[in-house]
Amino acid sequence: MSLNRAVPLTCSGHTRPVVHLSFSRLDKDGTYLLVSSCKDGNPMLREWTGDWIGTFIGHKGAVWCTKLSIDSSKAATGSADFTAKIWDTFSGAVLQSFPHNHIVRSVAFSPSTSHLMTGGQEKKVRIFDLRKPDAEPDFLGADTAHDGTVKSVVWIDDWNTVTAAEDGTVKWWDVRTRFPTSTLTFPAPITSMELSTGTSTLVLTSGQTVAFLPSLPSSKPSHNVTLPYAPSSASLHPILADRFVAGSTTDQWVRIHGMNGEEREVHKGHHGPVHCVEYSPDGEMYASGSEDGTIRLWQTTPGKSYGLWQGANGL
């Protein structure tokens, strides 16, 4: 373990804990966007440098998840105000709002952005057709999708989705039949799950385990790593797939681990527990969100000329 003294860039603006981060796909010019979800109810959109672009105003409760469409023209949010909303990322206007009966914890666009999937404390997974905003949603599963709060929903391709819940189960679904094609169970509640698009790998945290799962059910085995602490979130390097970043709500550190679990780097910068971490799509940096209300951006290779670190000589 090395205590790397890299100094992060700090993105301020939120007034309560930052609970979820998500990057857009890499644009043709090598840039991308970052969206943050916060208990202050005001998700924010930022440039790849961390510079603030705008805030989506309209929720009346904590926002637990924000995702961008593939072309970044739309954002989807899930909130404690019992709604999921679709936003125009250029104007910041609300395009659509979908009521639920309880807190919405996770949202995901279909690859074509024609549908939205939601999950949350109802234990249900809904699919809305964005082309028919007045139509009733479809539900995955006969009644409820899981026996616990749905913590994450991920859309893989046109017909395949994945959900993970506090009941410790991960389910792969065929959207056409609305029934699971495969189920994997963990002994502890699942706290996070994200798709590493560059590697087509699902990265999941449960108890002290970080699991790396195939995005589609296959004979390819999952790879599990047990850490000495319970990670709140983890993200795989999208190009090299030789390391992952993890945060924890038990301390204020951001850690880099090798794929066998060894601790490579430890970073201190936050002043509260770390709720979420995410690698940028080019793998050049990673972001962390904390109880302290800030987002911090860390270079994968400290000292490299990149983004706002250009000419900073080792920031």
Score class of each variant (00 low, 15 high):
Leu3Tyr: 14
Asn4Trp: 10
Ala6Glu: 10
Cys11Asp: 06
Thr15Glu: 13
Thr15Phe: 09
His20Leu: 03
Phe23Lys: 03
Ser24Tyr: 11
Leu33Phe: 15
Pro43Ser: 06
Leu45Pro: 09
Glu47Gln: 15
Ile53Trp: 09
Gly54Asn: 09
Ile57His: 10
Ile57Lys: 08
His59Ser: 08
Ala62Tyr: 12
Lys67Ser: 13
Ile70Lys: 07
Ala76Thr: 06
Thr77Ala: 02
Gly78Glu: 01
Gly78Gln: 03
Asp81Asn: 11
Phe82Lys: 12
Ile86Ala: 02
Ile86Val: 13
Trp87Ala: 05
Trp87Asp: 08
Phe90Tyr: 10
Ser91Phe: 01
Val94Thr: 10
His100Lys: 07
His100Val: 05
Ala108His: 06
Val125Asp: 02
Arg126Met: 13
Phe128Thr: 00
Asp129Pro: 06
Pro137His: 04
Phe139Cys: 06
Gly141Tyr: 02
Gly141Asp: 00
Thr144Gln: 09
His146Thr: 04
Val150Arg: 01
Asp157Trp: 07
Thr163Gly: 03
Asp167Lys: 05
Asp167Val: 10
Thr169Glu: 11
Lys171Phe: 10
Trp172Thr: 07
Val175Gln: 04
Pro187Arg: 09
Pro187Leu: 08
Thr191Ala: 13
Met193Phe: 13
Glu194Asn: 13
Thr199Ala: 08
Ser200Thr: 12
Leu202Thr: 07
Leu202Trp: 02
Ser206Cys: 14
Gln208Asn: 15
Thr209Arg: 13
Pro214His: 09
Leu216Cys: 12
Lys220Cys: 15
Val225Tyr: 05
Ala230Asp: 13
Ala230Gln: 15
Ala234Pro: 06
Ile239Arg: 12
Phe244Cys: 04
Phe244Leu: 10
Val245Trp: 02
Val245Gly: 05
Thr249Phe: 08
Gln252Glu: 14
Gln252Cys: 14
Arg255Lys: 14
Asn260Asp: 15
Arg264Gly: 10
Glu265Tyr: 12
His267Tyr: 15
His270Met: 07
Gly272Ser: 03
Gly272Tyr: 06
Pro273Met: 06
Val274Asp: 00
Val274Ser: 07
Ser280Leu: 01
Ser280Glu: 01
Ala287His: 00
Glu291Ala: 12
Trp298Asp: 03
Thr301Pro: 01
Pro302Gln: 02
Pro302Thr: 01
Gly303Ser: 05
Lys304Met: 11
Lys304Ile: 11
Lys304Thr: 12
Tyr306Pro: 01
Ala312Leu: 15
Asn313Glu: 15
Asn313Leu: 13
